[in-house]
Structures are given as C-alpha cells and as structure tokens.
Amino acid sequence: MTKDVTNSTLTEIKVDFKTAVINIDREAIETQVEAAVEQYSKQEVTVENYDAVYSERTAYNKLIEGLEDKRKELRRKSLKPYDDFNNWYEQKVKNPLEKVVEEMSLGINSINEHKKKLRLDVVRAVFEEKCMVAGLEKSTFESKYADYAKATLFKNGKMELKKATLEEMDALVLAEFDALEQYKANKQAIYDQAQDYDLLPDSYIRHLEDGKSLVDVLQIMKSDRDQKELRKQQQEAREKAEAERQAEIERMAQEEANATIKAYNAETGEIIENEPLESDEGINVPPAPQTSPEVPKFEPSEPVSYDLRLTFPLGNPQAKQFKEWLEANGVTFETLLQGKTMAELTGGTADVF
C-alpha cells in the first residue's frame, strides 16, 4: 500500500536557543590593563628597575595564559551544545530527509519527463497539421519542438497549448510559407532568365540555395551572358576572317588555274602550240593562247643558283610537269632540308652566300 503523506506535520523544525552567560568584571579588568599599559609602555628598562619590570612581565604573562586557557574552556563549553545539535541534525534529520527527497525526486522527474514527452507530442502534432495545410514539409519546424513544449506555454493542468502560443506558431508557419513561395518564385525567375540567356540554370540555383539574393544571382547571370555573347562574337569574327581568307586563297588559285600554261621546245625554246596536256590525275592544262609572245633566246653565261619556294595551285600533276620541263631544259635542282642540301647536311661544304 502507498503511504498517505498528505497530513504530515513535518513542515518545520523548531529550535530553542539560549545564549551562554559569562560573568566577569570587565570594567575593573580593563582599568587595570590600561594602568599597566600606561606605566610600562613608555618606561625605559634600567639596571635599577630591571628586577621590578621582569617580575611584572612574568605576572602579566601568567595572567594572559590564564585568561587564554579560560577562553578556550569557555569556547569548548559553548560549542558543545552546538556540536551535539549538529550531530543529531546530520544523522537523525538531514540525511534521512535528503534520502527520501531524492527518492521523491526520482518519481517526480519521471512524471515530469513523461509530461514533457506528451507536450512534445502535442507540439509535433500541431506543427505537422499546420505544415500539411500550408503545403510545407511536416518536419520543417522539428528544431522548434522543444521551445514550444515548455509547461508555461500550455494551459494549467491540461495538455492544450495556450491561444497565444498557437497564434505564435501560426505566424511562424505563415512566415515560412511566404519564404518558400518567394523562393519558388525566385527559382522560377532564374529558370526563365536562364532560358532567355541560353544558360544552364543549375549553378545559379545553387547560388540561390547558398543564400544569395535574386538580384545578385540575376546580375551574375547577366555577366555570364555578356561574356558568352562576347566569346560568340569573337568566334564568329574569327570564322568570318578564316572564311574570307579561304575564299581569297581559292580565288587566287582559280585565277592561276585559268592562266595559260605554255610549253617550250627544250632545244629551240620555241612555243609548242599543241592540244592541252592531261595530267596523271586527269587534270587538263589549258593550251597557250595563240597570241603568246616569243620567248627570248639566252646567251651562254656562267651557271647561277637560286633558292626558291614554288607553289603549284593545281597540285602534284602540275609540279610533275614543271619538273619534267626543268629536266628537259637542263636545269638541275635539289631538295633543301632545314635550309641545306643533303651534301651540306652530311658534311659537305656549306654555301657561304
């Protein structure tokens, strides 16, 4: 059976205390002490009064020792009632009461913990319901549960939140809902702007998630768009210049291809007015015009050499035909490697010119 402690009379402990009385003629003693101090504090000790002063000092020391012993005795006697009371209080009152209070606290704390869990359940349920109505994740305010589970926020003796508490929670949910709607709007604005700028939106959404404002994110997007547009214009300019260069090369090659190729007799140097030559690859070399001027005749002279770079717009067939003409006219030629002939590269004498 549970012991009924509702009518316990142990509410306070009454202690009667009477101060000990010490009887002594304080005034007479103080008068004698003052006289001794007056007499000896300024007195010079000489050979003549040495014995008298010595004797008085001995008497005073014995007096002090006697009074000190008496003081200690009085202290022991005066503390004895306190010591007896203290021992009784520690063993018979304080220790048993503290033990039972500790046991009571365990039970009370258990109940309090249970009530706290119930309050947490109430707060969790209220928040989750409000989040569901607002379209928020039910765990949005999980970190706030302990703050709103305090007993002072509930009605006395009930597991019901106070009206003011509910209104504060409503305001919290509404603010979160507005913030979420604003975030969604900002996110959509970034998607729309990314589509207009032809940019990928993911990296800019991360800026928003990291706490940057919409204005800051849009400024970053505009800067990236401008850079992208600049790179595009530069690329287009390079491509246009390359196309123009290629067109010019093709134009010049076509002009050269349309020029008249004249064949010469290797012995006489006369122009041969025959049909167009056909190359190994089937490319026809147009005949020389009928009005070609005569080729001048050369007087014999000392041989001379030139380093040339020749470009054949009609490719290798044209180069092969030119090679044959050189050989037919006795013109010798060598291939240069790194600006030197094969003989020079293998140890021959280099041309000093």
Rank of each mutant, 00 (worst) to 15 (best):
T2K: 12
T9I: 11
K14R: 09
D16M: 05
F17L: 11
I22P: 01
D25M: 04
R26K: 13
Q32V: 07
Q32K: 15
E34N: 12
E34A: 15
A36I: 10
A36D: 08
V37M: 12
Q39G: 02
Y40I: 03
Q43F: 00
V45A: 08
N49P: 00
A52D: 10
A59L: 12
N61L: 15
L67S: 08
K70A: 13
E73W: 12
S78H: 14
S78E: 14
K80V: 01
D83Y: 09
D83N: 14
D84Q: 10
Q91V: 11
Q91L: 14
K92H: 09
L97V: 09
E98T: 04
V100M: 14
V101D: 13
E102W: 02
M104W: 11
K116P: 00
K116E: 03
L118Y: 00
R119W: 01
D121E: 14
G135K: 06
E142L: 09
Y145H: 12
A149Y: 00
K150M: 08
F154Y: 02
F154G: 00
F154E: 01
K155L: 13
K162M: 09
T165Q: 08
L166S: 03
L166G: 02
E167S: 10
M169N: 00
D170M: 04
L172N: 02
V173D: 02
E176V: 07
K184S: 08
N186A: 14
N186F: 04
Y191W: 06
D198I: 05
D198V: 04
L200W: 04
P201N: 06
R206H: 09
R206L: 13
G211M: 07
V215R: 10
V215A: 14
D216S: 10
D216M: 06
V217I: 09
Q219W: 02
I220D: 10
R225T: 01
D226E: 15
D226Y: 03
D226S: 09
Q227R: 13
L230H: 11
K232F: 11
Q234V: 03
E236W: 06
E248C: 02
I249C: 05
R251Y: 07
N265T: 07
N274T: 09
E278S: 07
S279C: 06
P287C: 05
P289R: 10
Q290Y: 05
E299Q: 11
L308P: 01
L310N: 05
E324P: 00
E327I: 07
L337P: 00
K340P: 00
T341Q: 02
M342Q: 14
A343W: 06
E344Q: 12
G347K: 05
T349Q: 12
T349N: 12
D351Q: 06
